[in-house]
Amino acid sequence: MKRRGLPNFRNVRALIVHPPGDNSAVLTAQLGRLGLCTESIWPADNVSPEGYDVIFFDADRGYDQQFGWERGQAPIPLIALMGSEAPGRIEWTLGQMPSAYLVKPLQPTGIFSALVVAFHDFEVRTRLMRKVEDLNARLRARPTVVAAITLVQSCMTIDSQAAYDLLRSEAMRLQVSVEFLCEQIETTGSLTPLKTLAESGTNPNSPNKRLGAGASANRTGGS
C-alpha cells in the first residue's frame, strides 16, 4: 500500500457534533493547532456533510436522525467521541461505522493520531468497498461469461480454459471488460461482437460509449 506523506491537516474542514463544554473546547483548540477550520453544532438534526472533510460526533447522546445519510454510510470520515461505555451506546456508535475513536474527557494528545487513523481508514475502506462492488458485479455476470465460453468452445472446438483465455485477450485488445464482451456474445448468440466491437472501436464518435454501458462494463477485466 502507498505510504502517506507528512500528515498535514491545514485547511481541512471539521464539524463537531457535540454539546459545548470542556470537551468541545479542548477539541476545537487542538484542531486549530493542527491547522483545521472547525465549526460546532448542537443540537443537530439531519446534518449535511456538504462543506466538511471530517465529522466528530458525540457517541453518548447521538441518534440516527442527527445525520443526513443512511446509518453506516457516512460519505466522509467520522470520529466518535466516547464517554459512556454502556453496551447500547457502543452498539449505536459502531452502527455509524466511525473511522476512529477518542475517549472523553478529551485531551490534546490523541487527536492528531485519531485524524491520521480516520483518514487512512476511510481511504482504505472506500477502496475496499469499490473493490467489493466490482467483484459483485463480476459475480453477477458469471452466468453470462459461462454462456459465452460455451459458445466459443462449440464454435471453435477448444476447451473451456482456452475459450476463456481467448475471450480475455480479445477483451483486453478491444479495451472492454470480459463481462461486457460476454454479454454482447450472449445477446447476439454469436461471435460477431468480436468483429463489430473491433470495428466500432475504430470509430472516433463512439469509442467509449460501450464502456459506460453497465456497472459490470466500466472496468476492463483481469482475474
Binding site: G5, L6, N8, F9, R10, R33, L34, G35, F112
Partner: peptide, 9 residues
C-alpha cells in the same frame, strides 16, 4: 509550528 502545519516540502 510543532505540527509542521505550514510546512510544504
Amino acid at each position: 509550528d510543532p505540527y509542521l502545519v505550514d510546512f510544504d516540502a
